[in-house]
């Protein structure tokens, strides 16, 4: 694949989405888009480890929360500059990924065991953040409202939208370059058959470790941005199971182990959720119930997600081999 064909469509999609605030500038819509992009980022992170590497984490909230709490606490407790806090929070998230990855891959945890241990780590973090006075306990943390560019706070939602979009596009580009690298090929080899990959000389432990670190860093970016956008978080938001679920759901709906999958999945999910809310009214839990149903239906009927369906449809229409 030439670089143009590899990276062109990503930039094109980014440019198309970036023009959106000029046509539809309602705050409600922009707000929904920012939230969908935050989820897309978390999902892109999950997709590196789960989609390409086949290691299903049920606890990506651990990394999202590290990013979110990191940003918020460094600013409120230590008066660190917002951008420096953002960077430090992402570093903290990737360190958490490295540590959890080291512990669990060292003990050879795979499949359900890995899913369980990630879930447990996220829960431990949630309980600790909920009880520890330093993290604000159950009351949570509030970042002081101070709308200035130096504090990473903006009056216009469109600016947040462009920043979030910029992050998503940048991660898509990283994602594509991973796909085209030797590291990406090793990762896919591990997903397809870990023992065979090992037999062929792939250092599976270090590849998985790199993958979880990168994965955690991206999800931490999502968390840090979330904190910066909403300026409030508590343990159930930052480390709650909802984000772990959305992070894994979006790639599965969109297309596992693809560049566009997590983004399409996240945007699609939020579109569907908004429609459900419009139809069913504000019934609590109804959107999540729908997500769960979609998860089962996708696993049952469309293992390759929306991307897979599109590829199949194109092959049928144009008779080309996809």
């Amino acid at each position: 694949m030439s670089p143009l064909r590899a990276y062109g469509p990503i930039l094109l999609l980014g440019a198309a989405l970036a023009s959106m605030p000029f046509f539809a500038a309602s705050n409600t819509l922009l707000n929904a888009m920012v939230l969908a992009l935050v989820i897309a980022l978390a999902a892109q992170g999950w997709n590196i480890l789960g989609g390409y590497g086949g290691q299903f984490s049920f606890g990506h909230a651990a990394f999202f929360g590290m990013g979110a709490y990191g940003t918020a606490l460094l600013q409120t407790r230590f008066g660190v500059n917002a951008y420096a806090a953002f960077a430090a929070a992402v570093a903290l998230g990737s360190a958490a990924g490295l540590a959890i990855g080291y512990l669990s891959f060292r003990s050879g945890l795979r499949g359900s065991y890995f899913a369980l241990v990630t879930l447990a780590f996220a829960e431990v973090f949630r309980i600790l953040a909920n009880a520890w006075p330093f993290t604000g306990g159950a009351a949570g943390v509030l970042i002081k409202l101070d709308v200035r560019a130096e504090t990473f706070q903006f009056a216009s939602r469109a600016v947040y939208f462009w920043i979030a979009l910029g992050l998503v596009v940048a991660v898509m580009l990283i994602n594509r370059s991973v796909e085209r690298s030797r590291f990406g090929a090793w990762l896919v080899a591990i997903r397809e058959n870990e023992d065979a990959a090992k037999a062929l000389g792939v250092d599976t432990f270090s590849v998985k470790l790199k993958a979880i670190t990168l994965s955690a860093a991206i999800t931490a970016i999502s968390g840090a941005f979330y904190a910066q956008y909403f300026l409030f978080l508590d343990a159930n938001i930052a480390f709650g199971p909802w984000i772990s679920v959305e992070a894994l759901l979006a790639p599965i709906i969109g297309g596992l182990g693809t560049v566009f999958g997590p983004v399409i999945g996240a945007l699609g999910l939020h579109f569907v959720a908004e429609i459900t809310r419009a139809v069913a009214g504000r019934v609590p839990g109804i959107d999540l119930a729908l997500y769960g149903t979609l998860l089962v239906v996708m696993v049952a009927f469309a293992r390759d997600g929306i991307i897979g369906l599109l590829t199949k449809a194109r092959a049928r229409l144009f008779g080309s081999r996809a």
Binding site: G111, S112, G285, L288, A289, G292, L295, V296
Partner: peptide, 22 residues
Amino acid sequence: EDRNILLVTLGLSIVIENLLLA
């Protein structure tokens, strides 16, 4: 496939829990 069972049971838990919530 084991991976699918993992996801299907997770999906079911989300459905049951949230239908009860609704």
